[in-house]
């Protein structure tokens, strides 16, 4: 080949490599679930965050994976993400709509509420017809009863909140079949409403949160799949100054 031909080949190859690297960096390695930004919605040292659990993720190509959704504070839509941002030194009032059925905990220790204001959570059960009165609960026995569907735990803050589940076989067999569970058809789906509060730390940074129920069905020890994938059962709470 002549010199110009060699140089031209070289330039083309170089541009192709750069394009490939940029594509991998931005499209694959840099890809993250979106972050729900609750920063502007904090008032008087308080912020309200609403989440949802569902037994399936029909919005992705993993329809059988269990998942969390987080409500977008401005559009009020439930987005498929587990990342949210809240201010430091603020009380976060969390509401979790639990639409999944029960699964036993691997370690029953995680059936105890810890790290919330007053070390309790307030639970309302909806059995498909009526919403029960709010009960303040501290401990759940997932082995003896159908009591827990997931947990919301931030180990870095000592926070652990078991999400109560619909309690009977009939209710568990009648769970909402789409996700997020907001379609009119899901209006009668059994679920629970779990409310609790906790204080964010003064140190800004990323605090990971996870679920301690081995809910990745079909994976060894139940901790693969959704349990190991951000956006499903693993997420980060971004505490900002």
């Amino acid at each position: 080949m002549s010199l110009p031909a060699r140089v031209a080949t070289l330039v083309v190859a170089f541009l192709a490599v750069v394009a490939g690297v940029l594509w991998v960096v931005f499209d694959i390695i840099g890809a993250q679930p979106q972050t729900e930004n609750y920063m502007p919605y904090a008032q008087g040292g308080q912020v309200n965050v609403t989440m949802m659990t569902a037994a399936q993720t029909t919005v992705t190509n993993k329809p059988d994976w269990v998942t969390y959704f987080i409500q977008n504070p401005s559009t009020k839509q439930f987005d498929h993400t587990t990342y949210f941002a809240v201010p430091a030194n603020t009380t976060v009032n969390v509401t979790i709509l639990g639409y999944d059925g029960c699964t036993p905990l691997r370690n029953p220790l995680w059936g105890k509420v810890a790290g919330t204001t007053g070390n309790v959570e307030n639970v309302q059960y909806y059995n498909g017809k009526t919403l029960s009165a709010s009960q303040a609960l501290t401990t759940f026995n997932s082995w003896a009863n159908c009591a827990v569907q997931h947990t919301f735990a931030i180990p870095g803050l000592g926070l652990n909140v078991p999400i109560a589940s619909p309690t009977t076989v009939a209710e568990n067999n009648n769970l909402c079949g789409t996700s997020p569970c907001v379609a009119p058809a899901d209006a009668g789906s059994p679920h629970t409403v779990v409310k609790f509060s906790f204080k964010t730390p003064g140190t800004p940074g990323s605090y990971r949160w996870q679920c301690f129920v081995p809910c990745g069905l079909g994976y060894v020890d139940g901790n693969g799949g959704p349990m190991s994938t951000p956006g499903y059962m693993a997420g980060e709470m971004e505490v900002q100054a």
Binding site: I29, A31, Q32, G205, R208, T229, P230, A234, E236
Partner: peptide
């Protein structure tokens, strides 16, 4: 030490 440019799974993948 605490802010992340990648998700934790992506870090392990890399």
């Amino acid at each position: 030490p605490s802010y992340h440019v990648m998700s934790p799974t992506m870090y392990l993948q890399v």
